[in-house]
């Protein structure tokens, strides 16, 4: 928006051949201050829209968490706090280098600015690499969003809980008439996924902690005794009855993926923008007089950081 005016309009170039109108100042602005103020104002308004966009997901999160705390607790156990915390640190540092890059641009420190932007870009790369590791682990364990949620891991976990709490699940299953009717046909289609095992710290990627059947504070262990056992969807098909928590653990992972994927998308967009200003900075387009693009990209990057600051405790530290 504050790029050099490229319009083919010969007419307006002629009209605007002011000696005091710098090349980077768009034709419709009178002063650099006006241009910079406009740009920042537009950016902040846009950041407001970003906040509201994430607001929708935060709303879904808040309502589900309030209504199904147990399910969220079960789900979050499968997220790696360590990776989450490392990612937070990576983003914070890249945010710092970005802020420093803006300062460098303001002070005409061109090579420092380029270096800092490169570091920020690397920070973004690091974040995405870690996210990829986490995502891969989730998908491997059938903990993807929506149709990719087959949840053998969670069923096993609940199974373990059920065993410690007694064998109520079987009694329960027999008690439900619907189960008997659907049993044989569904059991036939049951297709246990071989190779998916109970998550343990050895088998799982870093931080896929094997949750010992530890109940969260105020968590009623017996409530989980009826979860039964089974594999993924077929668990439901085979048992006919289910509990709130299993279904909502599925929703937890949907919300988790929704939030982190939208955030990840913003990281990618931010990285592309950083690359863009990095190249322009290398060409020496910015100066103490004109550095609005660096400033704006910085604002965007900080917003990405800001959102992660909230996502981290909400998703990883329930």
């Amino acid at each position: 928006m504050s790029q050099v005016e490229l319009s083919p309009a010969q007419a307006h170039d002629a009209e605007n051949a002011h000696h005091d109108h710098p090349e980077w100042l768009a034709h419709h602005f009178d002063t650099p201050d006006q241009q910079n103020t406009s740009a920042k104002m537009g950016m902040w308004a846009f950041l407001g829209t970003e906040i509201l966009m994430f607001g929708g997901l935060f709303c879904a999160y808040a309502i589900w968490r309030a209504n199904h705390y147990d399910a969220f607790w079960i789900g979050h156990v499968y997220l790696s706090t360590a990776w989450g915390a490392i990612n937070t640190v990576v983003l914070l540092i890249s945010s710092f280098t970005m802020a420093w890059a803006v300062r460098a641009a303001q002070l005409n420190q061109r090579s420092l600015c380029v270096g800092l932007l490169a570091l920020t870009f690397l920070g973004g790369c690091g974040f995405m690499v870690i996210k990829t590791i986490e995502y891969t682990g989730k998908f491997e364990h059938g903990l993807g969003p929506g149709i990719w949620y087959t949840a053998p891991a969670i069923s096993k976990q609940l199974d373990a809980m059920a065993e410690t709490a007694g064998t109520a699940s079987h009694a329960d299953a027999e008690a439900a008439p619907a189960t008997e009717a659907s049993g044989p046909a569904a059991a036939e289609s049951a297709n246990p996924v071989p190779g998916t095992s109970l998550p343990s710290s050895a088998a799982a990627p870093m931080g896929m902690v094997a949750p010992a059947p530890v109940a969260p504070v105020g968590h009623d262990m017996a409530a989980h005794s009826a979860h039964g056992h089974g594999e993924g969807h077929n668990y439901y098909a085979a048992h006919g009855h289910t509990t709130e928590d299993l279904v909502t653990a599925r929703t937890f992972f949907s919300i988790y993926f929704g939030m982190t994927a939208l955030h990840g998308l913003h990281v990618l967009v931010g990285m592309a923008l950083i690359l863009w200003v990095l190249l322009r900075a290398r060409r020496g387009e910015f100066s103490a007089e004109f550095n609005t693009p660096v400033d704006l990209v910085g604002l965007y990057w900080h917003l990405v950081d800001l959102i992660w600051i909230f996502l981290f405790p909400l998703l990883y530290l329930i």
Partner: peptide, 28 residues
Amino acid sequence: ATPVLAITLLLLIAERVLHVGIFDPALG
């Protein structure tokens, strides 16, 4: 207001394609 529509529509697409279960009562 518009950003909220944007996320709503994205969630709707996710719901239809991936069945994420945020709006579909059959999935909770």
